[in-house]
Write a protein that binds this DNA or RNA. Structure first.
Lengths: 337, 337
DNA sequence: ATTCTTCGTCGAACCGGTTCGATGACCGAG
DNA sequence: CTCGGTCATCGAACCGGTTCGACGAAGAAT
C-alpha cells in the first residue's frame, strides 16, 4: 500500500513511480501504463503526511473561526462555506481552528506546527494579537476583516462604514429625522471589533452630514437581547422612526418587539442595515439592506492566500467590497405624527 | 527550527530531545531543563507532518459536511461546532471535507490519503455509499445519523420517529383531528434521507393509532418554499389545524404564510416539530418542539470515535437520543368551527 | 567506428520526527 | 576488586514519500 510496494509489483524503482505520478520527469508510456494498472488494482494513494514532509507543503489551509460557544452568524457561516468550497476547487483541504481566547492551543498548533500552508483569519479585531503572531511566524495569511493599521498584510473586507453611510442617506431621503444604530454586543465593541466601530463612525458622520438625530445601542447577539433592546430604545427615544443594524442575530427579537408594539414595517417604522442576504429575505417584510457578499469574500480570501503562498515576497494585496443596497420592502417614508 | 537544531544547541542527541518532550523514557532533570530552555528560546514546535509520518497517526479528525452550496441548517451548524470543540478539548484538529456528490475528490483524499485518524460523517442517507467506502478502507468512523442496516458501524442519532410520534400525541391530546407533516425537500427524501423517512413513518403510525387524518408535504429548505408550501396545503386541505415539521429552513416562510392568512398561533393553528433550540426560541411565538441536542450529539460522536481509534477491534457502539419535548407556546386546543 | 546526445531509469540522500537496541557511567552487593 | 543492575544517553533504523545526480542503452552526428 506504499510507493515501494507499487514499485516492486510494477518492476521499477520507487523514484520512477513517483515521477510517473507527478510527471516531473518523462517516463515511458509503457511503464506509466504498467504503474497505473498496479495502482488501480491496489487502490493506492500517496500518504499525505509523507508527501507533506518531503515537499515542505501540506496542501492544507487553516481557517480560524470563532469558538462554537459563540454561535456563528449567518454571514460567518457564509465565509466558512465559501472558503471550504474555494479550497476544494484547488484540491486543498481546510483545517478548522476555533480561536478567540488568546492562549489557545489549537491556534498555536496551526501556527507553529507547519500543519498548513496558509491561514485565513476571520472575525478579527482592530488590534488583533493573532495577526501579530502570524506575521512573526512568517506564515502566509489573509484576514477577512482588517486591523486598524494593516501595514503589510493581506486582507479582504466589506466597507461597513460606507454601507452604513448609504443606509443613513437612504433613510434621510425618506424623511426620517431620528434614527438608531443597533450594533453588536458591548463586549465585542469594547474588544475593538472592526465592523462595529467602523459602522458607528460611518453612522455618526452620515447623520451629522444630513442633520439627523443619531442614537446608538449595543445589543447582544441573541433574539432575546434584540427584543429587550428594541423595547428599551423605543421608550428612551420615542422619536426614533428608523433603525440601521449590523446585528443579524438580534433580528428575530426586533421583529417580535415591533409586532408586540403594534408597529408595522415600513408603515410605522423603517428597518435596514448590513445583513446576510438569506436573513434579509426571510424577514417579514423582506429587508432593504446591504447584503454581505460572504461567498465572494471567502473565495477572494482563498485566491489572495494562494497568490501569497505562490510568491511569498509579493506585494501585499487587499480588497474592500462595497455591495449595493438591495431595495426590498422594509423602508418607507417617515410616519406623520 | 527542527529537532536536530534543538539537540545540537542543547548538546544532546535528537532522540534525547524526543524523549524529553514525550516523556516516554526517563531523562535527567538537568537535561530536560536545558532542552526546555533552548526550546523556549527558539519557539520550537515539532513538525506535524514528520510526527504523523513517524507515529502513524495524524492527531486530526475528518468531518464530512454537506457542500456549502446546500446551506447548513442550524442543527448541522450545531454539530460542526460541537465536534470542533470536543476535538479541540482532546488537542485534535478537525479537517473539513465537503461531500455529498459521490465522486468527489475531497472525500477520497481524506479516506485514502491517511490524512486523518478517523472520520465523522453527517447528513447520511439510509443507503450511503460513503459508509461503505469508509468500511472497506478500514478507517475508523462514526456517523451522526444512521444507515438503514447499521450492522457493525458506530453511530449516534436522534430518534426522529419517536419524537414525531410524541409531537403527534401531543396534538391529538389537544383535540386536533387533521394534521400535516412538513418534511424536507423531495430530493432529499428521494435520496433516502433517514430523518425524513423515519419521521414520516413515525407520523403515519402515530396518526393511525390516534385516528387522525394525516397529511404530508415535502418542502425545499428555504423560506420561500415554506411560504408556498403552507399556502398550498391550506387550500388543499382546509381542515388541517396543526403542523409538525422537521424543516427548520422553511420556518420563516411558514411564519409569513400564517401571518398573511391572518392565522394566530396557537389560537388558530398549532405548530410543533423537531427544531434547533435557538430557532424554536426565536420563533414568534416560541415553538413547542423537540430540541435536537446537537451539542450532545457532536461531543458523543467524538467520544465514540476516539474509543474506536483507541481500540480498533472494539465492539461497535451507538447512541439513540430522545430529547424531551419543550413545551413553549405554539400549540393549543383545536380551534372550533 | 567513435563520440555526443537524448531518453528512461535507478540508487541514494533527504524531509523531521519516533523508537529500539546498545553502551557507558555509576552504584551497591558480594 | 569484581560483578550485576540501574539510569541516562546515543546511534541507527524507520515512517513514505520527493528529488538530485548518475548511468546505461539507443540513436544521431562526425
Amino acid at each position: 500500500m506504499n510507493i515501494g510496494e507499487i514499485a516492486r509489483r510494477a518492476g521499477v524503482s520507487r523514484s520512477t513511480v513517483s515521477y510517473a505520478l507527478s510527471g516531473k520527469r518523462p517516463v515511458s508510456a509503457a511503464t506509466v501504463q504498467r504503474i497505473n494498472d498496479v495502482i488501480a488494482e491496489l487502490g493506492y494513494r500517496p500518504n499525505a503526511s509523507a508527501r507533506a514532509l518531503a515537499e515542505g507543503r501540506t496542501r492544507t489551509l487553516g481557517l480560524v473561526v470563532p469558538p462554537a460557544s459563540r454561535r456563528l452568524t449567518d454571514v460567518q457561516l457564509g465565509f466558512v462555506g465559501s472558503v471550504v468550497d474555494a479550497a476544494a476547487a484547488h484540491d486543498l483541504d481546510v483545517l478548522l481552528s476555533p480561536s478567540g481566547g488568546d492562549h489557545d492551543r489549537s491556534f498555536e498548533r496551526i501556527v507553529t506546527g507547519r500543519r498548513v500552508d496558509g491561514v485565513i483569519l476571520m472575525e478579527i479585531l482592530l488590534e488583533d494579537p493573532r495577526v501579530e503572531r502570524l506575521s512573526q511566524a512568517s506564515l502566509p495569511f489573509v484576514t477577512i476583516g482588517h486591523v486598524e493599521h494593516p501595514g503589510a498584510s493581506w486582507w479582504v473586507d466589506v466597507d461597513y462604514g460606507g454601507l452604513i453611510t448609504r443606509c443613513v442617506h437612504h433613510l434621510a431621503d425618506l424623511g426620517h429625522e431620528e434614527v438608531v444604530l443597533i450594533s453588536r454586543s458591548a463586549e465585542l465593541v469594547a474588544a475593538g471589533y472592526g465592523p462595529a466601530l467602523r459602522s458607528a463612525t460611518g453612522f455618526l458622520e452620515a447623520t451629522a452630514e444630513r442633520g439627523l438625530t443619531a442614537r446608538m445601542v449595543c445589543c447582544a447577539d441573541e433574539a432575546a437581547a434584540g427584543l429587550a433592546c428594541f423595547e428599551q430604545l423605543r421608550t428612551q427615544w420615542p422619536g426614533v422612526t428608523a433603525a440601521v443594524t449590523i446585528n443579524e442575530a438580534a433580528l428575530p427579537g426586533v421583529q417580535r418587539a415591533l409586532h408586540r408594539a403594534g408597529l408595522e414595517v415600513p408603515r410605522d417604522f423603517s428597518l435596514t442595515g448590513v445583513i446576510a442576504e438569506r436573513l434579509a429575505e426571510d424577514f417579514h417584510p423582506p429587508l432593504t439592506a446591504a447584503d454581505v457578499p460572504a461567498a465572494d469574500l471567502g473565495r477572494l480570501a482563498v485566491d489572495l492566500l494562494l497568490a501569497q503562498i505562490a510568491d511569498r515576497s509579493a506585494e501585499p494585496r487587499h480588497a474592500l467590497l462595497e455591495p449595493p443596497i438591495s431595495l426590498r420592502s422594509s423602508t418607507g417614508a417617515r410616519p406623520r405624527g
